[in-house]
């Protein structure tokens, strides 16, 4: 798709709702407005989870485009949402930012996996992403995300104008996650010690659950490779969650480690 030939900005919408119908998680409501689309619920053998692929038919966000996701999990449901591809953010040629909002509600005894949000801001792109999750003490959330510094194969590195992401998670009335990243390469000195250093990728794995204190983070630490080109840290969020954060130049390794940790967390 050519970014420049695209006419009016698009406004994609996807509202999906899950319900436990006779012991099975079903996709009971799906409103979709192009370019966003959801697959039907798929059931992978051996799991009770409903897996839904999130599709974006336009190929990426062009200046002024906006995508809004609303996800509701009623009580006793288990859902895996898989964006089919990374979100590509094209140049903001008219200086208009591209926006993405994700609003999630997770009911009692329900579990959601968002696997995975990947943002690739192209040269001169402007991106604003806001994700908000409201959950209960008995629900759980697994959220994986990777932010790219650009299209690495084209040698783009922090050539975008702005990339703003924000994730907040509220467990009942308590804020458990409030994480904003505002990357403005022209105004900030991102590539220095203590900031983003010489790394091209930021990875985040959030596991939020009131029983997260049972997870042994020392055991996790042993599963993570630390090299000059790839590092990570683990943090426990006051017993209500785990964050693993990466700075890396090795994208396949981040993905591999995320998958390993996801598996460990989900089999606990």
């Amino acid at each position: 798709m050519s970014a420049v030939t695209k006419a009016a900005p698009s406004h994609g919408k996807l509202d999906i709702k899950f319900r436990n119908v006779r012991g099975k998680t079903s996709l009971v409501d799906c409103y979709q407005q192009p370019p966003l689309k959801a697959s039907r619920a798929l059931y992978i053998e051996g799991t009770r989870k409903a897996t839904v692929y999130l599709m974006e038919s336009s190929g990426g966000l062009v200046a002024g485009d906006r995508n809004d996701f609303t996800v509701e999990l009623e009580e006793n449901t288990e859902v895996v949402l898989k964006p089919q591809s990374a979100t590509k953010v094209y140049p903001a040629f008219n200086n208009q930012p591209s926006e993405q909002t994700i609003t999630i509600h997770i009911g009692e005894n329900s579990h959601l996996e968002w696997n995975r949000d990947e943002i690739i801001p192209f040269e001169r792109a402007k991106f604003n992403g806001k994700s908000r999750v409201q959950m209960t003490n008995s629900s759980s959330l697994l959220w994986n995300e990777i932010i790219y510094s650009g299209r690495e194969k084209r040698g783009e590195k922090f050539a975008f104008q702005e990339c703003n992401t924000h994730l907040e998670v509220w467990m009942e009335a308590e804020c458990v996650v409030y994480d904003s990243l505002k990357l403005h390469p022209k105004e900030q000195e991102l590539q220095q010690l203590s900031v983003l250093e010489d790394f091209n990728y930021i990875g985040n794995l959030w596991f939020i659950c009131s029983e997260a204190s049972k997870v042994d983070s020392t055991e996790f630490q042993k599963l993570l490779v630390q090299t000059e080109n790839h590092k990570s840290g683990i943090s426990t969020l006051d017993g209500k969650g785990i964050l693993v954060r990466w700075l890396s130049n090795n994208l396949p390794l981040i993905k591999r480690e995320m998958e390993t940790l996801d598996m460990h967390l989900l089999t606990k």
């Binding site: 904003s180 505002k182 250093e197 954060r245 700075l247």
Partner: peptide
């Protein structure tokens, strides 16, 4: 903004 990610990981 928590963009001082290196320091955050160093602290972890």
């Amino acid at each position: 903004s928590n963009h001082a990610v290196g320091l955050e990981i160093a602290s972890m």
